[in-house]
Nucleic acid binder design. Structure first.
Length: 492
RNA sequence: GCAGUUGUAGCUCAGUUGGUUAGAGCGCCUGACUGUGGAUCAGGAGGUCGGUGGUUCGAAUCCACCCAACUGUACCA
């Protein structure tokens, strides 16, 4: 009696959560998106620069990793000399380091762009990954609101270059100084309480006025019954905050807000950005002041902007999906000066390429058709591989993507199946009959697939051999080209 | 992190009040039609029923704990 065959313990092949493998279609889409964004950034005068994915942890932010939880939010590890290193979580902090390190040799203002993967160790969601691509542009060394206005205009241009039409996106602009004015008016001294207020404001688009009102006051209970403690503001203060972040600013401003000097400064800057944008033909349908935009909590010092898609996105099951902002940025006057004794004003804009791609894919705005595979030269007679390889080379030399079938050539069926899976436009066949006549068969798989739908029996199928024709060996390249042209096959 | 929901084949799911060797469709592999894939037919592989412990004569099914995924929420430089 045989024992139960004990299976060897197999290693489970699995991808850590929040990460994704990317196939040809996704890679192609990313490549096209990146190229379109690059063209816009180049047109605005930015030049490329690239920095590594790893930086000293303290160069990225002011916090060293906690000894107990060194990977809170960011992926960190220690170098040989015990210094903490981290994977970058955005492209702005590394750029600040780069500019500070090469300050004397760079032209000022220094205007550059770069695309790359960034990493965040946090909970993933739809369109939210732990590794994702950003595409940034920054102007370092200019304090002018014109530099900020330009970022907003470029954001709008980029969206349109990516195929998001006017009216389907909006660049929302606010100014941290305006928010500081609100703080002044409220007289909030405690940092913790102010952070709670800002977080509440940031949630306006998601939770609505009533949700924000709850978060500014006692707190809010979510759908699952979980409770979030609020900022504990009084009713009159809540009213002041809500009036300050309201879209419609036509009502007379609360005296406390009006009297804040820093708040007024912020409003003046916003007004300038608005004027610059308007002068260049960007109306409020594209670039709009929105006093509820907060943008993170750390390094922004002045204008902040956020690009939002206005289209309803639904997932495969038809459920609505929230993507949040697909891009954003702002002024970070303090980031470079951390490395230097002097003030270095800077402003930048970042597109979340991965998130935007996820959104555009769901919206059907991206070309997700798979790339065409190569022309496959089949192996009819095993001992004539050299001949077949010669056909392959002839095609390749004429810049036609081609390959020899390298699997087990025991029958034709497997070879056609392979070609089908590769999405090949056609295959080349040469048996002894064709060989004797100095000919090959070219089988048009795209045309054949259409014909197959109408044919019921295998016998009929084989007798008619649809979409297949023969030609002289010397004509292979020309005839293949005809097939490619008929189906508009283009590679790369 | 907190809360809710859900874990059965590669995928989508059945699985009756706890009762023999856990099923289907699709996919995959093999074969038939022996110079041509998608049709059809025949066969096959594939499951620690998320994991561990418990209750029971008996657990995919009941209980406890753990793990994972999804959704919401918090955090997000």
């Amino acid at each position: 009696m045989a024992d139960k065959p004990k299976k060897p313990q197999k290693l489970k092949a699995r991808l850590p959560r929040g990460l994704e493998d990317r196939g040809p279609a996704a890679i192609k889409a990313t490549r096209q998106m990146v190229e379109k964004i690059r063209q816009v950034y180049e047109r605005y005068g930015f030049e490329p620069v690239e920095t590594p994915a790893i930086e000293y942890t303290h160069a990225l932010g002011k916090f060293l990793p906690d000894q107990d939880r060194p990977n809170e939010g960011v992926f960190s590890f220690q170098d040989d000399d015990e210094q903490w290193l981290s994977l970058r979580y955005d492209l702005t902090a590394p750029l600040a380091r780069y500019v500070a390190e090469n300050f004397d040799t760079l032209p000022k203002p220094y205007r550059s762009y770069r695309a790359g993967y960034v990493f965040r160790n946090e909970k993933p969601g739809p369109g939210r990954f732990r590794q994702f691509m950003q595409f940034d542009a920054d102007t370092v060394g200019s304090a002018s609101p014109a530099a900020d206005a330009e970022m907003c205009m470029m954001a709008a241009d980029t969206m349109q270059a990516l195929g998001v039409p006017r009216g389907s996106y909006v660049v929302k602009v606010n100014n941290r100084k305006v928010l500081d004015g609100v703080r002044e008016a409220l007289g909030i001294a405690g940092e913790a309480q102010w952070l709670t207020v800002m977080r509440a404001i940031d949630k306006l688009d998601r939770l609505g006025v009533s949700g924000v009102r709850q978060l500014l006051g006692e707190g809010r209970k979510d759908e699952s019954g979980d409770f979030t403690k609020g900022a504990g503001l009084q009713e009159s203060d809540i009213a002041l905050v809500l009036s300050a972040i309201e879209q419609d600013q036509s009502a007379p401003m609360d005296a406390r807000l009006r009297d804040s000097k820093i708040g007024q400064e912020g409003r003046d800057e916003l007004e300038q950005i608005n004027q610059f944008a308007a002068a260049s033909g960007y109306g409020t349908d594209r670039i709009k002041i929105d006093p509820s935009v907060v943008r993170g909590l750390e390094y922004y010092t002045g204008p902040v902007f956020e690009v939002e898609l206005l289209l309803d996105t639904k997932d495969e099951k038809g459920r609505p999906v929230r993507f949040g902002s697909v891009g954003g940025g702002g002024r970070y006057d303090g980031l470079v000066s951390r490395f230097r004794g002097e003030v270095v004003p800077a402003t930048g804009f970042s597109i979340g390429v991965s998130r935007l791609q996820a959104a555009l894919t769901l919206l059907g705005k991206l070309d997700t058709r798979p790339e065409f595979g190569p022309v496959v030269v089949t192996v009819f007679d095993r001992d004539r591989i050299a001949d077949y390889q010669k056909f392959v080379s002839a095609l390749r030399n004429e810049n036609v993507r081609a390959e020899l079938y390298l699997g087990n050539p025991k029958n034709m069926g497997n070879q056609f199946k392979y070609a089908d899976r590769r999405n090949s436009p056609c295959v080349i066949i040469q048996g002894s009959d064709e060989k004797a006549r100095g000919e090959v068969q070219i089988k048009d798989l795209i045309e054949g697939a259409k014909a197959a739908a109408a044919i019921a029996s295998n016998q009929e199928w084989r007798e008619t051999r649809p979409a297949q024709f023969s030609c002289k060996e010397e004509e292979i390249v020309a005839k293949v080209r005809e097939v490619l042209a008929r189906h508009d096959v283009k590679w790369g």
